[in-house]
């Protein structure tokens, strides 16, 4: 708890939507939990069958619905439960990342990582780093739905 409080420097808490594959990254985040690893609670995990199943629409929609950052995480290359899902994800996500950067969305708002079921510590580090990188950017307003 004390560690988390120390991190709060402003009122702003970045909100992260994390798409985690069921077989590796989601299990990795579970491991972080059961190992009692402390890390910021900014990420809302959404379990998906495979990183390859993450449609660009999910990412854009998360930003549209107000996420400050989006993470897609899957099994390491070679470890995909569906053999090649993460290869497909790698290509698709590269394009999404390029496109977001192209229209001027800060590159740090979107991230991809490989986290295995055994890497609870890595998962917590990915989230910690992401939160730290997002903090200086402030709230994401570019793609957020304009309901005014």
């Amino acid at each position: 708890m004390s560690e988390q409080q120390a991190e709060v420097t402003t009122d702003y808490e970045p909100r992260i939507v994390a798409f985690l594959c069921k077989w590796c990254s989601s299990a990795g985040s579970d491991l972080a939990g059961v190992s009692r690893i402390q890390y910021p609670s900014n990420a809302t995990p959404i379990t998906v069958p495979c990183s390859g199943s993450v449609s660009p629409m999910y990412i854009l929609s998360a930003l549209n619905k107000g996420a400050d950052g989006v993470l897609v995480s899957g099994c390491h290359i070679g470890d995909c439960h569906y053999i090649e899902g993460n290869f497909l994800a790698r290509r698709k996500i590269h394009l999404v990342k390029e496109l977001l950067g192209f229209v001027g969305v800060e590159p740090d708002r979107f991230r991809m990582s490989w986290v295995s079921a055994a890497e609870g510590a890595k998962y917590s580090q990915v989230i910690k780093d992401f939160v730290e990188d997002l903090r200086p950017l402030g709230p994401q307003k570019k793609l957020k739905a304009d309901r005014s």
């Binding site: 790698r90 290509r91 991809m112 780093d129």
Partner: peptide, 8 residues
């Protein structure tokens, strides 16, 4: 060998 430098 698709690019993956951007992945952490």
């Amino acid at each position: 060998n698709d690019p993956e430098k951007f992945i952490r």
